[in-house]
Each structure stands twice: as structure tokens, then as C-alpha cells.
């Protein structure tokens, strides 16, 4: 598995390894949804209305970009009960920006005990290949 859940006394952490920055953020989303939805990721896009969705984030640095990305996914989960399934995702590590296009799908399980992705103990670097460690406040 290219991501794994790591222990924290009160909460949960996520470590992600990838070949590219875009893959890192995609895999982080996968791990994040795994925690939020208790592993149940099977979902089809909402039917009956335009379910396309774009996420655009400009951050001050990569740490903020990663936290903002996961908190954006949490926002969609909490307010729309929706999972974001990206069809394209691009990340600029030098400008700390992200653009993702995709669709929203209903979250089958409403297990959202995550309060937020946090900066506590966060590690994100690109050498030798992109890596992210982030902790979630539960």
C-alpha cells in the first residue's frame, strides 16, 4: 500500500509515498477517505445533476497545500456528504498550487470523526521522491 496509517495517542496519522507530486496528493486523498469512511470507498458519482467539481488551491508552501487539500475534502464530506473523485490533478511544488477536476460521489458511510488535517508533525518533501506525513485531529 503506498500509504499507511500511523499511530498517534489521540488521533491518526497518514504516511504517503509516491513517484510524483500529483500522485502524492491523490494517494493522500485515498488514505484520508479510508480513515473518514472506515475503508468503504465504493461509490458512484451523484446522478441527476451536474456532479462535476473543481478544486483550486493556492498555498503559502507545500505544508499548507497538503493540509488545505485534505481539509477541502473534509469540507465536501461534511457539508455535501460527498467524495471527490479526481479525473485530473496537477500540483506545482514550486508555486504550492493545486488544480483538481473531477466528480462528486455520495459518501456511503457517514463516519466522519475527523475534525481537521493539522500541521502538527507534518513532513512533506520531494527527495528522493515525494513523501507526506500528516496527522488528523479526530
Amino acid at each position: 500500500m503506498p500509504w499507511k496509517i500511523i499511530a498517534h495517542t489521540a488521533d491518526a496519522g497518514l504516511e504517503v509515498y509516491a513517484e510524483t507530486w500529483a500522485e502524492l496528493f491523490k494517494l493522500a486523498a485515498e488514505g484520508f477517505y479510508h480513515i473518514c469512511l472506515d475503508g468503504d470507498l465504493s461509490s458512484s458519482p451523484f446522478e441527476g445533476f451536474d456532479n462535476s467539481h473543481t478544486i483550486s488551491i493556492e498555498a503559502i508552501d507545500l505544508e499548507e497545500l497538503a493540509v488545505s487539500w485534505l481539509n477541502e475534502l473534509l469540507f465536501l464530506l461534511e457539508t455535501r456528504r460527498a467524495i471527490f473523485i479526481p479525473s485530473s490533478l496537477s500540483v506545482s511544488d514550486t508555486r504550492a498550487t493545486l488544480l483538481a477536476e473531477g466528480v462528486l460521489a455520495p459518501a456511503n458511510q457517514a463516519r466522519i470523526s475527523v475534525k481537521a488535517a493539522t500541521y502538527g508533525g507534518i513532513v512533506i518533501n520531494g527527495s528522493p521522491s515525494p513523501f507526506l506525513r500528516v496527522f488528523l485531529d479526530m
Binding site: 499511530a7 495517542t9 489521540a10 488521533d11 491518526a12 479526530m138
Partner: peptide
């Protein structure tokens, strides 16, 4: 006060 992770 917790002393064991949720996963554990």
C-alpha cells in the same frame, strides 16, 4: 486523557 492510539 488518552494513553493509547485509536488504532491500537
Amino acid at each position: 486523557g488518552r494513553m493509547m492510539s485509536r488504532s491500537e
